[in-house]
Structure formats: C-alpha cells, structure tokens
Design a protein around this nucleic acid. Structure first.
Lengths: 252, 252
DNA sequence: CCGATCAATTTTGTATGAGAAATAACGAGC
DNA sequence: GCTCGTTATTTCTCATACAAAATTGATCGG
C-alpha cells in the first residue's frame, strides 16, 4: 500500500482514548491500524525512515518512536540494512490492549470475533468463580453500588457505562489474580468501546440488569458454581451484542 | 532508588533473547526489570530526560525510545511538565511477553507464580480440547515429529527443548485461535526460559515424554475430553518444575 | 482577603543534521 | 566454485536547537 493513504486519513479517527494522553501516539495508532487491518501484509517492507517520515510529514524521530511502540507490541521488526518489515501474524501481541482496540475499530473478521469470545467464555466464568471464593466485603459493596448506579442511569448514559465498568473491575479485583485482571479488563474494554462506538447508544440489548444481578448474587453468596454459570450467560450476551453492533456497522 | 544502580548492573543480564535482535532494547530491559522488580515503586517519578540519559551514559533520544517501549507496555506514563512516572500495577500489561520475562527473570513472588499457573490451568487444557476437535493432519504430523525429536535428544539439550517448543507450537496452531496462541505461547516461553535458566540443565523433572505422549494421542484421536485432562496434568507438572527451579535459585 | 486571569518556568515532545554500527550484497582472488 | 574482504544501504546513536504543554506563581481586580 502507499504511505499516502495514511497521510490522507490523518486525524479522521474518532480516537476512543477515553482520557486524552500521549497525543503523539496517533502516528503509531494510524500505522498500527493499517497493519492489523491488513493494509500492510506480514513480511512487507515499510519505507525507509527518511522517506516514510517525509510522506507522513513528521520528523524522523517521531516516526522512529512510533515504530518503537509498534515493535514493542510485536507488529514490526527492524534491522539495519534490511529495513523494517511487518512481523508475521503469530508474533503480534494480540492481547495488547491497544492492538485489540485497533483490531476492533475496523471490521474484525467473524472468525476473529468468534476466537476472542471463545477465550472470554473460558476465562471470565473462571474469574467469576474465583471471585466468589475470594471476594472481600469491600468488593461486594463496590459491586452493589455499581449495580445500583447501572439501574439508575442505564447503559445509554456515560455514567451507566462507567458503573458497568466499575462492576466488572470490582469483580475482577475480587478474583485476586493480576493476570486475569489484565487479560479480562483489556479485552472487555476494547470490546465495550467497540459496541458503544459502532452503535451509538442504541438500546439494542435486552435489559442487562437481571443478568448482572445473578452474577452479583452468586459472588456475594460465595457460590462459585453459580457464579461461573451466571458469568457464562453474561459473556454469551456480550457476544451477541457485539456481533450485532459490528454487523449493523458493516452493512448500514 | 538511584539510577546509578542501573549503570552498575549494565551488561550483566544473561539476555535470553534467543535470536539476537534489537540489542538496543537492553536499556528498556534494564529499566523494565527495575520497575517490575519493585526497585521503582508505582507512582514514583523517574528523573528528567537529560539527567537520566546522563546517568545511563546514553543520548536523550535513546533514553526516550526506551521509555516509549515501556509506555507501550503500560509500565510508565509521561506528560509534559509533570515528568515520567511508574504506572499503577493494574495498568501494567502483565501478559506482554517481555514483561512476563522480566518478571520471571527475577524472583517472582509465590503468589504471582500461583496466579500465572492458575491462568494456565484454565486456558491451556481448553486449548488442547479445541485442538483435538480442529487439528489437521499436518498438525498431527508435526507434533509426532517433535515428539520423536524430544525422545531422541531429551530436554537437557538445546535441540530437545526446541522440539518441545515445536510440539506445543503445533498443538496451539491446531487450536486455530490466534488469541489462545499468543497468550499461551508467550506465557510458556517466559516460564520455560526461567526453568532452563535457573536450573541449568538440571534433570529435575521426571520423564516428560509419557505425559506429552498422552496429550498427543488424545489430540490425534480427536478426543477433546482426554486432551483436556492430559494437558491439565502437563500444566501441573510444569508448575511443579517451575516452583522447584525458582526455590532452588532463591535458596542456594 | 479571595478569585481569576495571565505570564513564567520546567518538562516532555519535535525537528534536523552528522556520523557510527551493522549487515546484506557484491566482487575479487584463489 | 568457494572464501574473504569491500562496499553500499539502512537502521541506530548522538548532539543541539526549538516548540508545545502544563503546572506554578504572580499580578490584578473585586
């Protein structure tokens, strides 16, 4: 692909950053999206530093730092004389929060979506089960509070979605496993953002409160089996919603 | 902590890179290890660019690029005027291959080790079960070949360990899920390197061939239940070995 | 005394030019 | 045909200068 396409699309991204931080990362973002979306194929050589930075109208340093970010995420690898090339897909850090977000900002293939939720169906119920065993009173209180806020504001509002995030965050913390926390929160955030972004506030899903309530009750009661089951349902519902959002966005 | 400690330890790392690639990343490595090992606490401010680069005896650009790598992995965040500070732990990308490796090069706490294998016990058996359903003949052939090589060379040799890697790689590919592949291979590689590095070729584990054979037979037969069970045993054995290696290294 | 607005200072961010290291490709010599 | 040095290209490093951002403090008005 031509580097000009990138320049052309500069600044058109909705930038679902949440908090504005590291504006400069937009270059890495654009390049990253171009890569994960397949506009650069694995093995393909990128232009040299001078040429690329000229096309993008940025300095060489800025371009290099963007490449550093991408190489830290396993998307590219560069060596002297050879140049910088897009890494093979299996080297990509697919679970990196940014990479995930980049993937889901475009139109992820059905199989990718299926794969991601395959992972979620395995991990998240187990996290809920662990949370049921290990939760402290504080976690239960936070989940309860978040649930109340969800009921009050609904998911159509920013406050409601924040409460949803809080609910899951508290649950994950209760699991006490930092790896599960990183994994699940990253995946959840990327997907949640997708649904919100693709279907703007569309009340497509059925009332999510009862399902959350089931999870809450099970975890609060310390019933790991019930927690697992309830969370499985929740993930399945999320899968349904996400698929719906993506299909609506791709075929308007 | 003082930045001088870093300079002092420069070049002492065994650099388990495998292929030499991006030597320059050693700065990021040192800093990353310093962070995940707790020598910098979350929230702590790093020195300014000029001062830090002087201490490390590198240029400002080199130091900045190292910071970029770390920020891409969620370890630090920098803003103008405020400076660069170590991010809160929950922001770290714990499943990033490099971060994992950095964590396990030091002495990870028992609870961390427990947490990681908690994740593995959930994910890897499921990956094996999926592989049993989806494996193609090619995957079986590769696993078979790798198994033969393992039997011939044993895990005490480099060739044998390579065969072990190949075995698991083929199995993961058979699962057909890129997220499972990234997750498992990253985790596996970091831990495998730890055991090899900590206990140099020590024949601590019982013969791993039969356990691998069980997995192979189940996957080849397309029996997902048996695959799940066999892989569970394999993970448990790996947990035992890793714990042993780490304890041996910490209390010589 | 309190508040707000505006300027100053500090820190990261960007730009640019010059050169060093690394490595793949080429060619000379045997 | 094979080995070994040479060359060319590309990333990597360095040094310096300037721009942008954001916190701090000071100044002014109420």
């Amino acid at each position: 692909m031509s580097m000009d396409d990138l320049t052309a699309s500069k600044g058109f991204h909705p930038a679902p950053d949440g908090k504005r931080l590291r504006i400069h990362g937009s270059v890495a973002r654009d390049l990253g999206i171009a890569i994960v979306s397949g506009r650069y194929s694995p093995g393909e050589l990128l232009l040299g530093e001078i040429e690329a930075s000229e096309r993008l109208k940025i300095s060489r340093t800025a371009y290099r730092e963007a490449l550093r970010i991408l190489s830290a995420k396993g998307l590219v690898e560069s060596r002297p004389k050879t140049g910088t090339k897009v890494s093979a897909r299996f080297k990509w850090h697919m679970l990196d929060p940014d990479v995930l977000q980049w993937i889901f900002e475009l139109e992820p293939s059905d199989s990718l979506l299926e794969s991601l939720f395959e992972l979620r169906r395995v991990v998240e119920p187990e996290a809920a089960a662990l949370a049921a065993k290990r939760r402290a009173d504080d976690h239960v209180a936070r989940m309860d509070k978040a649930l109340e806020a969800m009921k009050e504001h609904t998911l159509a509002t920013e406050a409601g979605r924040q409460a949803d995030q809080d609910f899951h965050a508290a649950l994950l913390e209760a699991s006490g496993n930092p790896f599960l926390i990183t994994l699940t929160s990253g995946v959840g955030a990327a997907v949640a953002w997708t649904t919100v972004f693709k279907q703007r506030h569309a009340p497509l899903r059925r009332d999510p409160i009862p399902d959350h309530r089931r999870v809450f009750d099970a975890v609060a009661a310390g019933d790991s089996e019930a927690s697992r089951a309830a969370m499985t349902d929740l993930v399945n519902m999320a899968f349904h919603d996400t698929r719906g959002a993506l299909m609506a966005a791709s075929a308007p």
